[in-house]
Design a protein around this nucleic acid. Structure first.
Lengths: 366, 366
DNA sequence: GGCCTTGCCGAAACCGGTTTCGGTCCGCAC
DNA sequence: GTGCGGACCGAAACCGGTTTCGGCAAGGCC
């Protein structure tokens, strides 16, 4: 037999009967309607507490249209593999949501198209009252879709078309600025940059932060020291390799994210460069792998749990009617100093020579 | 203003009006009631398709008591940190659920007590029709709770009290058996074992598999070569260190999970033992870290996505009324051979000498 | 031809809430 | 004493579905 439902649940009718009130009155009392006497309201609330009554969100939804649930569609990216943030991110959302009696409805998708379909399906079936959109793109089709569906969404990150949008975001651009300043302060004058895929909005912001950092330190921007589109360790390794083949290579490189930075360790090993002396590396994210690495990676740690909490809180406030303009928050990533950066032990010229020497050795071998 | 709801949604009333039928008739037609003429049923279904009608699960739930949602409460374990499986596991559940029009309601908890509270809250508010319980313990309080609440749950793993329970599980015990057989076949005669925390049911099953493997190979069980309770890399390193200090140390060690096995690499490095020759290691899980390690870890790979799919499918079938006895499935983990095991290059005696020599060196240093 | 099934559908109750509408009672001013 | 407005609550409609019940018409049987 199918499972039978609702063992001994107390309904609003039970509560009304026990109090000798009409159920409409009970409902209004619980929902803070102004036309209920103060002492009646208190009486109702106390009775609800004692009898263990709480309304069924889906029963309320039939009239109110709100199910008290937040939607999150994760796009599973084969290329990026596992994400250590995920657990903490989900934890943050879940905590903030349940603190207010809300829940999290989660779905996954393998492609952007599938993600859009999934959002649409969840919206159509009204499984969520709004959506959290991680990994926002410069021009994000999810924002357009939800605007069309007239459903609120909060962005983890910013996007180009702000209209009616709100967000929580880490100030990655400030971190990049600080990273450059830090390296310049150590004596580096040629500082490279390895950026992420530019479909993502943060890639542009962080690149700008890097530029502003150079300006502020009185250094000039040299496109030869800059690469874009590195998301994985392999790509990070390749980018560093490429940058270091410049006749005047950088003595320090700032990475837009940690994964490529960690991958770049391999390049350094192959070239026989001592990280933190011959070449300085700074990442961004605070991946655990970075702290396990030797030397540990200097990076900017992002508190994903906090991000999840803030996002859930903002979205709930929006659904309840807050003005989007009041719902924009940012936070700064925290610098975690490791052993991967330090004053340059080699000049750019010496570094170039070392790299060339290694290359020649290889050619001999081959 | 709060978001207004339901832009232009088509309801069952719209559908009934368009068809010139009573809404009750439409409902029964869509739900395969036998008292509806075949051609009427088809007419209704086609119209529903054309008009883009699909029922709101929360509107149905008010009468049926089912919200078409699966509950999953993740216990965030600080000690275990991130889990690379999680993404795939969630993906599996989400896929199988949405294929049938169901959704996943996710929550997190920091302790077992909090997990129980969360399950109870979700059950009370009827946010889920049943629960998926990962990481089952020998005596799992969640099972007892849900039995009490009269809500179905499917276990990822088995448990001691089977009554009315159903599950999906990997046959970890077979993997342990195979690991021992494999090592014995390579010529190892002293094979150690590092097990997990025994509150988890799988720890006992796998330990049994290890024992049976020894028996089948004609080797005797020696408690001196066995440790329990290792969950992290550090604990794995410590356990191996400990086992190798035996006067007759094992030339091969089977690990209940990958994390301790990977951690044990450090111990081997410290002792100057070449993995795959001086000492053979076999893990279980198929963590990506294992394949990145040098040498790559021989392990048994678990398909977490498939596990999620099977669990979701089983739970939905149970909620729909299937007999729990028909809902018990298992699968075998797939052996992934790496470089961490091979024929013993040293006898147990030689190994003991090497370890002792290293220890003496240390003492001199200290 | 009358009666009894059977097939099929409409009508209405129901689920557990929310919201609107209107009515009663009270105090107060004139 | 009457009129009036505000405070407070009951009654009923409503939301979008499901399920029960009853009735009509057609068909089979004697």
């Amino acid at each position: 037999m199918p499972y039978k439902h609702h063992p001994g649940r107390v309904t609003i009718n039970d509560l009304a009967d026990a109090l000798g009130l009409a159920k409409g009155t009970v409902s209004r009392a619980l929902n803070e309607y102004p036309d209920i006497a103060e002492r009646t309201r208190l009486r109702v609330k106390r009775a609800a507490q004692e009898m263990g009554y709480s309304p069924l969100s889906h029963a309320q939804a039939i009239k109110t249209g709100r199910v008290r649930s937040l939607g999150l569609v994760l796009q599973i990216d084969q290329r990026l593999g596992h994400r250590p943030f995920l657990t903490r991110f989900l934890d943050g959302i879940s905590r903030a949501a349940s603190a207010q009696g809300w829940t999290l409805t989660l779905a996954t998708a393998l492609s952007e198209g599938e993600a859009l379909e999934t959002i649409e399906r969840l919206a159509h079936e009204r499984k969520a009252d709004g959506f959290i959109l991680p990994r926002t793109k410069v021009d994000d089709p999810r924002v357009a879709l939800l605007r069309n569906l007239n459903l609120p969404c909060v962005l983890y990150g910013r996007t180009s078309d702000d209209e009616g949008c709100f967000w929580f975001d880490m100030l990655g651009e400030d971190a990049m600025f600080d990273a450059v300043s830090r390296l310049a302060g150590m004596g580096h004058s040629r500082i490279g940059y390895v950026g992420s895929d530019q479909v993502f909005n943060y890639a542009h912001l962080r690149h700008d932060g890097y530029r502003r950092g150079l300006e502020s330190a009185g250094l000039s921007y040299d496109a030869a020291l800059v690469r874009h589109g590195a998301m994985t360790g392999e790509e990070g390794a390749a980018c560093l390799q490429d940058i270091l083949s410049d006749p005047e290579p950088p003595t320090a490189v700032v990475f837009c994210t940690d994964a490529p930075a960690i991958g770049a360790y391999r390049t350094c090993a192959e070239l026989g460069l001592e990280i933190g002396r011959d070449i300085s590396l700074i990442g961004y994210d605070g991946l655990p792998e970075g702290s396990y690495a030797h030397p540990s990676l200097t990076t900017f740690s992002v508190d994903s749990r906090m991000a999840g909490e803030r996002l859930a809180d903002l979205l709930i406030r929006r659904i309840r009617g807050a003005d989007p303009k009041d719902l924009r928050e940012t936070a700064k990533a925290k610098l975690v100093t490791g052993g991967s950066d330090g004053p340059p032990a080699k000049t750019s010229t010496e570094l170039a020579r070392a790299v060339r020497a290694k290359h020649n050795t290889w050619e001999e071998v081959v």
